[in-house]
Amino acid sequence: MSRVPSPPPPAEMSSGPVAESWCYTQIKVVKFSYMWTINNFSFCREEMGEVIKSSTFSSGANDKLKWCLRVNPKGLDEESKDYLSLYLLLVSCPKSEVRAKFKFSILNAKGEETKAMESQRAYRFVQGKDWGFKKFIRRDFLLDEANGLLPDDKLTLFCEVSVVQDSVNISGQNTMNMVKVPECRLADELGGLWENSRFTDCCLCVAGQEFQAHKAILAARSPVFSAMFEHEMEESKKNRVEINDVEPEVFKEMMCFIYTGKAPNLDKMADDLLAAADKYALERLKVMCEDALCSNLSVENAAEILILADLHSADQLKTQAVDFINYHASDVLETSGWKSMVVSHPHLVAEAYRSLASAQCPFLGPPRKRLKQS
């Protein structure tokens, strides 16, 4: 649940008159999402009104509101027999009622949201009550392989729920002597030191190019640089560091992050930047690179990204790559990247197969709970 924001200063709310007192009302909304995959969808019983329910879910471990999704594969009634019906059901509720908006969509073979439908307002739910769409999607369109909505005969539904909580009022009075504290510009100011090479005390040599930097900042941000300058190493004695395995453009992006906490060109060089972040123990930059690479996972590059993640101990990226390969196994196994990995990294192939087997055979063990970014 997000923290209630402070109200904007009255002088910034309007260029008009300023009242002596004010009130700011925040209506709290808890948002969460749920993904439900139905394997072997074409084998569902086709009687009209037949119901399939998901397991229950909530916004978190401490949330007492429990929900589930309900599907009628062949419609709810005679009117909707040519459609799939989809509903959000409130299973248990400690209150007399709650209000919530919802959005349903289908994830296609690429994991993209399609055929989205959402409620136009927050509906009133009581325990045992459901709301949804009797005519969510035509069955003939859903079952047509050309539309790519049932890869490997799996129907994957994605649901986003927004639950309306209580409202909170914050009130106060205006004073004539309003003090406005300026925003912190530390990142910009440190970035200026790097860009202008002011007050530098060490030189970093990268592929024949020299960059002036500040030992204190490098040591504070990177345990690797800290070790170089702290001990009686040649880098500490000469205040000069030779860097041979990072390209200059990648190095500059890494230094921008060290000084400012930002990497504006990360998406263009996420793979190389991940390697640099791993070498210099820049954990936050490493996770930022993992996130960017996750966003660009595809059938063509899944094997290469899995190898990269394994090489640099990028655990979150590795998990996402394995899950992606499992979901698109029939396509990924035909790529040149996968065939190369079979020869060069057989242990990763074995890991992917083990994960695929456990996903398809849940009876082999208890269900695993899916539970950071600093």
Rank of each mutant, 00 (worst) to 15 (best):
358 S>D: 02
231 H>N: 15
78 E>Q: 13
305 I>N: 02
325 I>G: 00
354 R>T: 01
219 A>P: 00
26 Q>P: 09
249 E>D: 08
184 C>D: 03
142 L>T: 03
35 M>R: 01
87 Y>H: 03
94 P>F: 11
373 Q>M: 15
324 F>I: 01
364 L>E: 12
156 T>D: 11
18 V>M: 15
350 A>S: 04
260 T>C: 05
154 K>N: 07
41 F>C: 07
79 E>T: 11
145 E>F: 04
359 A>K: 01
167 S>Y: 12
356 L>N: 04
316 Q>V: 11
151 P>K: 01
284 R>C: 07
184 C>S: 06
305 I>M: 12
24 Y>F: 04
259 Y>A: 01
266 L>R: 02
373 Q>F: 13
301 N>D: 12
46 E>W: 10
370 R>K: 15
268 K>S: 13
28 K>H: 02
58 S>H: 07
75 G>A: 14
122 A>T: 07
152 D>T: 00
105 S>G: 13
160 E>A: 12
55 S>R: 04
135 K>W: 12
211 F>M: 11
294 C>I: 12
235 E>H: 06
370 R>P: 05
21 S>T: 12
17 P>F: 03
162 S>A: 06
150 L>K: 06
211 F>L: 10
45 R>L: 07
221 R>E: 15
159 C>M: 03
136 F>P: 07
326 N>S: 06
259 Y>T: 01
43 F>G: 12
11 A>F: 09
66 K>M: 09
337 G>D: 13
366 P>R: 14
247 E>Q: 03
116 A>K: 09
216 A>I: 13
82 D>H: 14
173 Q>W: 05
204 L>F: 15
62 N>W: 09
267 D>E: 04
69 L>P: 00
315 D>P: 13
338 W>Q: 00
200 T>A: 12
191 G>C: 08
30 V>R: 10
106 I>S: 02
23 C>L: 03
363 F>E: 15
65 L>C: 07
127 Q>R: 10
257 F>G: 11
209 Q>A: 15
314 A>V: 06
126 V>M: 12
140 D>A: 07
80 S>M: 11
267 D>H: 03
141 F>V: 14
196 N>Q: 02
6 S>H: 01
306 L>R: 01
287 V>H: 03
131 W>V: 01
22 W>Y: 08
14 S>P: 11
40 N>D: 04
246 V>N: 03
76 L>C: 15
113 E>K: 03
83 Y>E: 14
155 L>D: 00
75 G>Y: 01
320 Q>N: 08
183 E>H: 05
271 D>G: 02
342 V>M: 03
360 Q>A: 11
12 E>I: 09
84 L>T: 06
333 L>Y: 09
59 S>H: 15
76 L>E: 02
44 C>I: 04
